[in-house]
Simulated scan of single mutants.
Amino acid sequence: MGHSRRWNAWLAGLVLSCASLPSLASHAIYTGRIGNSGITVVIESRNAVQRAIYSYDRYRTPIRLKPAFLHQTRDLGMDELDAAGLPIARLRFDVASFHRSTPRLTGTWTDYRSGRSLPLELELVAYLDYDEAWPDGAHPLLQAASSERFYFQVPMGGSAAAVGAIEVMQKSDGQRLQTLELPQPGCNRGMDTVQVVLERGRTQLRMAQTAHCPGAVFEWNPAEARFEDRLR
């Protein structure tokens, strides 16, 4: 009877622990073009749902797409959202397969206001599965949140791996300004690992803290022109 109680307690703790952690996902990273404009696209597949962001190489500002069950839709499309969360365009894929087995994607981008359509062409450059990466090594995963001057990346070797650093990238030239090493490895939440907030007029980068995930807060110091760890 005692063994049974211990087993049940262990099982309940395991279920609670798993429920509190981010669910497993895969991330496909592409480069390509919409019309003549270069873009970078990240597509996350989690629990049969696809979420995505993309950015124009010229502007380097991440743009969110509305989550979709692409295997259940007829046109295999995802709506592009503006800053208010309203759909303004649609990215449609000829094939909704975001895996190493489909290294090239084609489709169209259509502006809802004008009806103008442009061809979409993408090439797979990295695929981050639950416990491994292709090609081997760490790959920068673009974050959905950005600031006026910066966008952010987290180097990842697999979608389930803990995050050890945040890369601060300049929108003006695409160069890395700073690499922020985390005092403790943080939980991987995919494209939403890093949050950007304005606190007392200063930009902060935050990683959420939970019972199983150590948090992190970095704040922009204008005098030093860099982000500094606020928790140290």
Rank of each mutant, 00 (worst) to 15 (best):
T210R: 05
L198I: 14
E132N: 14
T31I: 06
H71K: 15
T110M: 12
L122M: 02
F93P: 01
L105R: 00
A161E: 09
R104S: 06
R60W: 02
E228T: 13
G158R: 00
G158Y: 02
V217C: 12
G158T: 02
Q143R: 04
R232H: 15
P22R: 04
D131V: 12
A160H: 07
N188G: 05
Q178N: 10
Q175M: 11
E224R: 12
V168Y: 03
N47S: 10
A126C: 06
R46A: 06
V125Q: 09
A211E: 14
R51P: 08
S101W: 06
A133T: 08
P62E: 02
D94F: 03
Y30T: 03
A216H: 04
M156E: 05
V41E: 01
V197Y: 11
H3K: 09
A216W: 02
N8K: 13
A19K: 09
C18D: 12
S4R: 12
L198T: 13
G77A: 15
R74K: 11
Y54K: 00
D173M: 01
T61Y: 06
G38H: 04
L142N: 06
L180N: 13
G164I: 04
T110K: 13
L11Q: 12
Q143H: 06
R100V: 12
Q50W: 05
Y56W: 07
W134V: 09
G107S: 00
P222N: 05
L142V: 13
E167S: 13
A52K: 00
L182T: 01
V95Q: 14
V41Q: 01
Y127S: 11
R202A: 10
G164F: 03
N221W: 05
E123C: 06
Q204M: 09
I53N: 02
S4Q: 12
A211Y: 09
A25R: 05
G157F: 03
I166P: 09
F93C: 04
P222M: 04
S17F: 15
P103M: 03
R6E: 14
A162H: 13
D75W: 06
V42Y: 04
L24T: 14
Y30Q: 03
A165D: 10
E199K: 08
A145D: 10
P87Q: 04
S114G: 15
M1H: 10
Q178I: 07
R116V: 13
E219L: 05
A48V: 09
E123M: 13
K171C: 11
L91R: 01
Q50H: 11
F218R: 02
Q143A: 10
E132D: 14
E167A: 15
W220M: 01
G186P: 08
E199C: 05
R60S: 00
A133K: 08
H99C: 08
K171D: 05
G107E: 00
G32S: 02
S17T: 08
D129C: 06
I39L: 00
R46F: 07
R46Q: 13
V95E: 14
L14Q: 15
A216D: 01
H71D: 15
R100Q: 09
F98C: 04
M1P: 11
P67R: 00
S45C: 10
E167L: 11
R232T: 15
R33S: 06
Q178F: 09
H139W: 10
R74H: 12
V168P: 02
G174I: 01
L180Q: 12
